[in-house]
């Protein structure tokens, strides 16, 4: 199942999990220690993040390790940058428009 990453990071608990993982790889137990909510509840949130390709979970022995998936995060962070490009190209078009008008 593929989930929408935007929806995934709309939730404060999931955002906090991403913040924790920016420090590096963590086990599910380590992540759960940061929250008052139950471990199964955390696991559920991790599953959402995994299904949105924001994190990767790998099982080694009895532990489950979580890491951030950088590509997906980068895609989201590019969003503002894209908007800036949009305006820069539109402002060039405005110049062309003004040139056209002044010729008339």
């Amino acid at each position: 199942m593929r989930r929408d990453p935007w929806q995934a990071i709309a939730d404060p608990t999931r955002r906090r999990i991403i913040e924790i993982l920016t420090e590096g790889e963590q086990t599910v137990n380590q992540i759960a220690q940061n929250f008052k909510i139950s471990r199964p509840a955390i696991s559920k949130q991790l599953k959402v993040l995994q299904e949105s390709s924001l994190i990767e979970i790998s099982t080694i022995g009895r532990e489950r390790y979580c890491t951030l998936s950088l590509e997906q995060l980068k895609e989201i962070s590019d969003w503002i940058k894209n908007y800036e490009h949009f305006w820069l190209s539109k402002l060039d078009k405005l110049d062309q428009h003004l040139k056209k008008k002044s010729r008339k």
């Binding site: 709309a10 920016t22 995060l73 989201i76 962070s77 503002i80």
Partner: peptide, 24 residues
Amino acid sequence: SHNGFEGVSGWLTRQMLGIGWKKL
């Protein structure tokens, strides 16, 4: 100026400026 990108993108921008992101 174009502002008011609240929530998701605002949070991401803050993240990128934060220490956690710097480590990453």
